[in-house]
Design a protein around this nucleic acid. Sequence first.
DNA 1: TTGTAGGCGTTATCAG
DNA 2: CTGATAACGCCTACAA
Lengths: 369, 369
Amino acid sequence: MVTMQQVADRAKVSISTVSFVVNDTKPVMAETRERVLKAIDELGYRRNSMARALASRKSRVIALIYPLLDHRHHHSFVDAAATAAEERGYSLVLWPVHSDNVSAEIASLIQAGFADGVLLMEVQLEDERVTHLQQAGAPFALIGRTRELHGIDYVDIDFERSVEQAVEDFAALGHRDFSLIIEDLSDTPLAGYSPPIRAEQTFEEAVRSRGLNGTVFRVPHERASILSIADEIARRAPETTAIIGMHDDATFALINVLRHRGIRVPEDISIAGIASATAMATLTDPALSTYDAPGSALGRLATEALIDRLEGRGGPPTQVRIACTLMPGASMGPAPVDRPPLSSEAWKRHPSTSARAVESAALDGTHAI
Amino acid sequence: MVTMQQVADRAKVSISTVSFVVNDTKPVMAETRERVLKAIDELGYRRNSMARALASRKSRVIALIYPLLDHRHHHSFVDAAATAAEERGYSLVLWPVHSDNVSAEIASLIQAGFADGVLLMEVQLEDERVTHLQQAGAPFALIGRTRELHGIDYVDIDFERSVEQAVEDFAALGHRDFSLIIEDLSDTPLAGYSPPIRAEQTFEEAVRSRGLNGTVFRVPHERASILSIADEIARRAPETTAIIGMHDDATFALINVLRHRGIRVPEDISIAGIASATAMATLTDPALSTYDAPGSALGRLATEALIDRLEGRGGPPTQVRIACTLMPGASMGPAPVDRPPLSSEAWKRHPSTSARAVESAALDGTHAI
DNA sequence: TTGTAGGCGTTATCAG
DNA sequence: CTGATAACGCCTACAA
């Protein structure tokens, strides 16, 4: 390994001078700098990050508390965060959380000098990790938000504005009967995860203030219940003509299931995904209209806010909320006129293929894998 | 920040003794150890990772060259790798790659002492990154494989066995006309990414050796073409009764599109996903049968192989291939008898809703978003 | 079993 | 502008 001293020797300068040119921390005569640069190049010198970290008391590492949920837009968060960090000379470390003593562990990451700051995802409204981080004086930024936000750097999806917008857009198309699909995270470690909660509140307020009807469906986290959501809607909100799905998988499944039953999208019912990952849209037929989550923008913003803070750029905290943007597909249409309720026998004329499959399998003894 | 020296003072021992108990590197009398532990506890001491790294010349950091593709099973790789690393006292750093000078950058990660080893994903058959890593003498492990594997630690999906198995399973159900769907990565930086290549070769060999018919479909990476894959199959392989989809999104879209056309799954045609992410299966109706990628097993194995190597546990390289495991759904059935070709007019009796939607929109002036 | 002391490669403070 | 030199906090022979 080539050290600064070796570079210094070869360039016939002192080790400090090498440091000055490498870090651009003090003015150095053009000619001297050239000599140093040349030596660096010839020797293939790279400054040792650990020595640097030790001497400067800065590891230039950011720890990302790793997300539990396998949401597709999390991928873009992480991706953007890693890239933004790298651009500013930092590294992003993935920190898997263990449900117990999370907070203590996070704080000790900093105390051990391993990371300079922490990025937190999947923030809950009351999040003890945030409290601990504050007490420990550890720099951090949130992707998401807590209830109390005073002085906290955070970036978040503006669910309120997004849901409001979706309701508005549907209302403009003449819809009056709405359903909202969210994830049911109660009984999971993420029970206090705010997006579904905030979406639900906003939704109810949005429909109420417009004199519309709205029903909320909470889909349990296990996959099995995803497909039955159509039945659920037919049962509890048969008049629904507009569905807002904040659960990509369920929305995705739903658009197909409806169609298999002969319920046309968007003629009989309209659907839009909200806080969706972009990639989902083109996989359905008709193409799903989505209000896309600004994943990579948020990942980048959060990282930069944190680094700014780490580097002492003071000032007021970064507090940004970005609404989802509508990516038009073909699943939102004008409200149907006099459509029979979803519970009606009228829809039964198109039995689902899978029902037939089960039937025939039972009859002739063959079975599908 | 509490230092070892402070702990030593309080415990009335020397700094080295503290080091010995902290790292369990030399025997220490039970009583002394207790004193030290007590002092550590009282002071809230945490050993400084940077100082440790510098002195021991080991950063205990593993760099993961960050994947480009947004495959859902990559999430489980990364997740498992981070967890496995953490369990052994290492940290996983995400290293975003820039298409240019990748190799040089990777090697310098190591030279700068930032990472002890590298984990490479999305390995290409001829991968210059691997060559550079070898030349630089940098420890690494692959998730995936190159053509030349001598002395290399790697773990990979056994695509050969998986595809073979899928063909075998379908053949046992009486199928004779196969289609394989893979991603077309040519014209992308991942042109030499081996999974599609190997799957294609194995597939062709597998059908040929059994005297079956097989057609390969390469779906371009942009989303737009995903939906048209059904037409493509009808045109180029109208007799197909068994589809193996190594492209979750396309497979997913396909099962729905087929159904919308009145082509029943699995009565008229069978479909299975291969190297899929588990989550996909239950989102379709009928449930997609998948050969699941062993994502987390591979992430963990690769990480452990690398750490073993870093810690000098010599011996032969870890070279593991794990086949995908069949997760039965309801999309694979017995081959149909005398089914009309997919190109036949017979299927036209169920026009797709979206075709109608476009029509009616054009007629009455309304339009779907 | 415990202590002493010399690095590890940089940064940073102070002189010159 | 450039050069000494003392940290930075820990590891590890080597001694005792």
